[in-house]
Design a protein around this nucleic acid. Structure first.
Lengths: 230, 230
DNA sequence: TAGTCATATGACCGCCCGGTCACATTGGCA
DNA sequence: TGCCAATGTGACCGGGCGGTCATATGACTA
């Protein structure tokens, strides 16, 4: 965890450090990310970083568990619990893609949590992040079950949650990159490339994902053309 | 690519090197995997490795694009094109999980291809592997469309392929690890843990995945209880 | 102004890496 | 048997890393 010294830092100095750290950790796997580089680019002595954080992992952990989620929550806002479940679900997916467009480096940082490589301590971190996301999604799907929007007696909720998470996480990311004809890191680096992932395309892709998910989870057989009973 | 010298190596020497290399690359991210370690554990001078492969990446590439796929193909065999599409699909998924049980290190090596971190050259490798898998899956789904087992006019085949790939790849892996209550690396290391992923459990999980996928892709609405029209 | 102390600094340390190369070993052929 | 080309070897290199620490700095007190 960051020291009081870090928290009391002048804003521009702290921001410089945070910005460069996020950039470094979003562009390289943890093992290759370099504190020396971060310090140099942020124009802060390397030794200072060790006054703010215990070590490399401590800095990474803080970025991943505090800084990134804070921005993500601020961006996503609180989802509207009222309204049609599937419409809300689609919106949530669209907002997730919007976050990728608006905060590519943070999105990339978070996406790294899916990385199964990595050293044990880093994996622990990643797993914690993933499980938090899974819990949130499960709660949301459970709400769908409660409202009757989801009804599939043979499908286990825990399993379904994880499969759906894979669809809207790595799955949709893959689709997006395919559509943009670029790699995650190219998208991360290019404003014009990200602009191509505009609201219309995001809605379309989110809808496609929901088509697949709902078709498998929806109580009504194919409620897309005709209204669901609810 | 490996030199002729490597290909002509006495079997036990070559096998030692390959085995230790696979182990090393499956236990650590590429950046942290160490040729010195591989050489030491295989009891082969480090210099020799450079007579067999150009460099670290060359060895990794060969493992990923030649050695692993060869074993995987040998294990999976050729799928039976006749028979019910969805039953065949479920079998394919079950065989994939069986591969994880029987060849955990190879499976882990292949799974690393999903890693979005990594350095550009490694990402290039990974992407190639992924795209090959996607192509195969798309062909299979296209067959489903042709036979009428899949019919969803609003869903784009390319997109569906990638989403389905996410389900049966990272998604199912996540589910399996959750059920075993362990991490991928623990499963990799423990025979007894892997034995818990027996045929019955594999079939059940594969069926759950198909439930989700088919529900969204199947021409018949819910053909699980009543026969599909074929 | 002189003294104090939290903080900033960057040269430095030990480590291990990927990769090289001069030399040792081997095995097949004359 | 004697030779030589192919192959095996591991000490060695330059480099960058995470992390340390003696010292410099500068704000604030008395």
């Amino acid at each position: 965890m960051p020291s009081p010294t870090f928290l009391a830092l002048p804003a521009d100095r702290r921001d410089r450090l945070v910005r460069e750290a996020i950039t470094e950790f979003s562009e390289r796997p943890y093992a290759e990310a370099s504190l020396s580089q971060i310090a140099q680019r942020a124009q802060i002595a390397k030794g200072s970083i060790y006054q703010y954080f215990d070590d490399k992992l401590d800095l990474y952990r803080w970025l991943l568990t505090d800084e990134a989620p804070r921005h993500k929550r601020a961006f996503l806002g609180t989802p509207d619990p009222a309204g049609d479940f599937w419409a809300g679900f689609e919106t949530m997916i669209e907002r997730g893609m919007a976050f990728l467009v608006e905060h590519p480096r943070l999105a990339r940082l978070t996406a790294a949590a899916a990385d199964p490589s990595a050293t044990p301590d880093v994996r622990g971190l990643h797993k914690a992040i993933c499980e938090a996301g899974i819990d949130e999604l499960r709660a949301q799907l459970a709400r769908g079950v409660a409202t009757g929007a989801i009804a599939h007696p043979d499908l286990d909720l825990d399993i379904a949650t994880r499969l759906v998470a894979a669809i809207i996480g790595p799955g949709l990311t893959d689709v997006v990159l395919q559509e943009l004809g670029a790699s995650l890191h190219e998208v991360l680096a290019s404003d014009t490339l990200r602009k191509r992932l505009g609201p219309a395309r995001r809605r379309r892709l989110a809808h496609q994902a929901v088509l697949l998910i709902q078709g498998g989870l929806g109580a009504a057989r194919r409620p897309l053309r005709r209204k669901a009973r609810t």
